[in-house]
Deep mutational scan, measured.
Amino acid sequence: DETGKELVLVLYDYQEKSPREVTIKKGDILTLLNSTNKDWWKIEVNDRQGFVPAAYLKKLD
């Protein structure tokens, strides 16, 4: 059920640097789980959840 889920576009590649982070690729469109922290957003990638720098993402309307 995708209702109410926010999507984000990945602006730059990011390689995870800790187990709490996930790797993302430029151009991916992913589900945003939590954006309350202005610097690190929690997203879902391939059934994995983790954090990436918010500056690497853009919210889609």
Rank of each mutant, 00 (worst) to 15 (best):
25 K>V: 10
31 T>Y: 11
29 I>T: 06
14 Y>P: 00
58 K>E: 09
45 V>Y: 13
61 D>I: 11
15 Q>P: 05
22 V>H: 03
7 L>E: 07
12 Y>K: 15
52 V>L: 01
42 K>W: 10
3 T>I: 13
49 Q>L: 06
7 L>G: 03
50 G>A: 06
52 V>Q: 00
37 N>C: 09
12 Y>R: 15
50 G>W: 05
42 K>M: 14
36 T>R: 11
51 F>C: 10
59 K>R: 15
55 A>H: 11
19 P>L: 09
32 L>I: 05
3 T>G: 13
3 T>V: 13
38 K>V: 11
45 V>F: 14
1 D>V: 14
22 V>K: 02
5 K>L: 11
35 S>L: 04
24 I>R: 00
23 T>G: 04
53 P>A: 02
11 L>G: 01
61 D>A: 13
51 F>T: 03
32 L>M: 04
21 E>M: 04
18 S>I: 05
46 N>T: 09
52 V>P: 01
57 L>G: 00
11 L>Q: 04
28 D>T: 13
31 T>C: 10
15 Q>K: 13
26 K>Q: 10
43 I>L: 07
34 N>L: 09
14 Y>I: 01
46 N>I: 10
50 G>T: 05
39 D>C: 15
48 R>V: 07
57 L>I: 06
25 K>Q: 09
28 D>Q: 15
29 I>N: 02
38 K>P: 15
46 N>A: 14
26 K>Y: 05
56 Y>N: 09
26 K>S: 07
25 K>M: 09
31 T>H: 11
42 K>S: 06
22 V>D: 01
49 Q>D: 06
54 A>R: 12
54 A>G: 04
29 I>V: 11
56 Y>P: 01
30 L>T: 04
42 K>L: 15
16 E>H: 07
18 S>Q: 09
23 T>Y: 03
1 D>R: 07
12 Y>V: 09
34 N>C: 11
25 K>E: 06
32 L>Y: 01
13 D>E: 05
56 Y>K: 05
18 S>A: 11
20 R>T: 11
44 E>H: 07
24 I>W: 01
27 G>W: 06
40 W>C: 06
11 L>W: 03
57 L>D: 01
54 A>W: 02
46 N>R: 12
48 R>A: 06
56 Y>G: 05
19 P>A: 12
50 G>L: 07
3 T>Q: 13
49 Q>R: 11
41 W>G: 00
49 Q>N: 08
9 L>F: 08
14 Y>T: 01
9 L>P: 00
36 T>G: 09
36 T>Q: 13
14 Y>E: 00
52 V>M: 02
1 D>E: 11
39 D>M: 15
45 V>H: 13
53 P>Q: 02
32 L>T: 01
58 K>D: 05
20 R>V: 10
7 L>W: 15
33 L>C: 06
24 I>T: 03
55 A>G: 10
4 G>A: 15
6 E>L: 13
9 L>N: 02
58 K>H: 09
26 K>A: 13
3 T>W: 12
54 A>Q: 05
47 D>P: 03
58 K>F: 09
41 W>S: 02
4 G>W: 13
23 T>E: 03
49 Q>E: 10
29 I>G: 00
39 D>Q: 13
53 P>R: 04
58 K>S: 09
34 N>T: 07
35 S>C: 10
35 S>T: 08
6 E>S: 14
3 T>H: 14
40 W>Q: 03
32 L>W: 01
27 G>L: 02
6 E>K: 12
9 L>W: 07
9 L>S: 04
43 I>C: 04
8 V>R: 01
50 G>F: 09
22 V>W: 04
25 K>T: 10
5 K>N: 09
50 G>D: 02
17 K>F: 06
13 D>L: 02
52 V>F: 01
17 K>I: 07
